[in-house]
Design a binder for these strands. Structure first.
Lengths: 346, 346
DNA sequence: GCCTAGACCGAAAGCGCTTTCGGAATCAAT
DNA sequence: ATTGATTCCGAAAGCGCTTTCGGTCTAGGC
């Protein structure tokens, strides 16, 4: 069975390839009748234009790339598939492709971006979890490849992004905890090269200040976004002479680790020590105890992000596409009113 | 700044385009000296062949598609990003692309596959979570598009797949539970149109038989792979006149729901009632109590799967690429010896 | 010194589509 | 009936690369 291409349809219909192509693409200079005829025959033979050829001819890649964050070791990566799903949804309406690309290591991340933007295989890029000063962003701008970042870097004035105001969220969370009577609030942050880590730390400190609390560096640590790393950090902090009665964590995954650390210190999280995470991960419902968290509205963010990117590809000004959402505190069972430590009793 | 293409390099070097191309692609009929010269200049100008053009010319797509499973609502989807990561890793060694495609609904899944295999944009496909009789597989075969399935359908003789022997795993798990003294073992399965659901059910029933236990349909249910659905199912089963003292679940996500159901029935999972899940999800460590599970060796399966697919694309016989791995029981805290039900005491 | 092999490279034909350009046919208007 | 404007379509030139084919040139072998 022969490949059905433009040529096939053309001979089948007894007209020229060019006409078939224009008919299919709804050019105005094709009569309604032949247009119909062409489309009918095309449908009959289940014709699908060879995308590669079309791309070469038109020069538009009809594809968007998602740059996978490099360290996907952690538990918290449901967000990747969520995002992908949303992006794919948005893309499929146009019939565009979604490419998932990975940098083998953090070193080669910039390289990957460079290649991506010069090889012409995509017409746009979405990256997530930017660093404070992110070379990827610089490269994308330099090569003027349309892109959108999920999150923000320090200098976020001149590109498109979609982010959640985690600074505000953490400020509020501190307020919440302070309202519960907590004075010693610990903080488990993420590595500070990530801008989101900085922003959450900032929120934490601002919250402290607003509530007349002192920033105590012995109560905070910055570690990888894994349960184990944060458990270790929390254990250490718990051994301080004046340990915290509550923890704020940069991610839910970390918060879960902290929960474990508290339990293994013989204390009861949610009662002896409060902990609040960030992300709103679903499985926080099932931790012990269920995790109170700052939930980002990430349900359909993939779609929105991609729609924004598409708008930019269509000629929109990136600066017009900057969305800041806000997180909401979802209280489960891991936070509670301050109560004096058991150890003080003995 | 002009695009650096073959033409540019050719004029730059004073030789023909064809020669440049062949030099770059290590054709044997190019002298070492010009080959070097060409490569040097290419590197200097940071030349990257336009992939689209190359694909058109060679006819090979240099890309592989991953077909996203349609209902990614559930918690258990870290496996998607894990898989993707592995696949991407394997692909990037060849410089190939990873396409992620989604069917908007289950109805259009076959359509999507059809288009994918005729549009020529990919040279291979990986699909996961096959149905018992999976139309996607039929279509892929019909269009002889190389593919590999993560899992197996009923008729798995003539294609490539990578699966874990969950039948065996569930048989063993029943044995484990029986050894612990449990006689009434409930089962929360997944929708039976999925072949893995059937296989796990089979394992469960075989295990029952091997241990001289009766299959009791009032103790089993098949529900969606979400925590809520399985919690509801477990609650119902718990109300039976002769409720189970242990549950086996087709997925960890379901097991977590069962944990919740047990607790909300006022019982203690792991003590009053055992529950064992399947998947080996990391966050099972943090449930209440930590979830005992049948862990699949999914760490690098993405890589292996993709390597297998690549081998097939290179001309390998699909039948030679069928891998069956085995799961291992990782005991955490949600299983324990049989103990008479509290309710019996009263 | 002539002939045959290689070795090496240029020319050119695609890959399957899009898109411009101009020509033929149709139509309305003078 | 002639002209001018439209409508509709065919021809052909790419898009940027690969790959075949054949030709030139040099190095051996006699």
């Amino acid at each position: 069975m022969r490949r059905v291409g433009l040529k096939f349809l053309a001979t089948e219909l007894g007209i020229s390839e060019g006409t078939v192509s224009r008919a299919l693409n709804d050019y105005p200079d094709i009569s309604q009748s032949t247009r119909d005829r062409v489309k009918e025959v095309a449908a009959k033979f289940n014709y699908k234009a060879n995308q590669t050829a079309r791309r070469l001819a038109t020069g538009v890649a009809e594809a968007v790339a998602y740059l996978m964050p490099p360290n996907t070791k952690s538990i918290s990566e449901p967000f990747v598939s969520q995002l992908l799903e949303g992006i794919g949804e948005s893309l499929s309406q146009r019939g565009w492709d979604l490419l998932v690309v990975q940098a083998s290591s953090e070193k080669t991340e910039a390289d990957t971006v460079e290649k991506l933007s010069t090889s012409g295989r995509v017409s746009g890029v979405v990256i997530s979890r930017p660093y404070k000063n992110d070379r990827r962003i610089e490269l994308l701008k330099k090569n003027n490849m349309p892109f959108i970042v999920h999150g923000r870097s320090v200098d976020s004035d001149d590109y498109a992004w979609f982010d959640v105001d985690s600074t505000q969220a953490f400020k509020d969370a501190v307020g919440h905890l302070a309202g519960l009577g907590h004075q010693q609030i610990g903080f488990i942050g993420a590595p500070l090269e990530y801008n989101f880590a900085q922003m959450r730390l900032d929120g934490y400190r601002q919250g402290l200040m607003e509530n007349g609390l002192q920033y105590d560096p012995t109560l905070v640590d910055h570690v990888d976004m894994t349960d184990d790393a944060s458990a270790a950090a929390a254990s250490a902090i718990l051994k301080a002479q004046n340990p915290p009665t509550a923890f704020l964590c940069a991610t839910d995954t970390q918060a879960i680790g902290v929960l474990a650390a508290i339990r293994s210190a013989g204390l009861i999280p949610g009662q002896d020590i409060s902990v609040i995470g960030y992300d709103g991960l679903d499985f926080g419902k099932h931790t012990n105890p269920p995790l109170t968290t700052l939930a980002q509205p990430q349900s359909h963010s993939g779609r929105e992000i991609c729609d924004m990117l598409l708008a930019i590809i269509d000629g929109g000004n990136p600066v017009d596409y900057q969305e800041l959402r806000s997180a909401t505190l979802v209280r489960r069972m891991s936070d509670g009113p301050f109560r004096p430590m058991k150890t003080i009793i003995s």
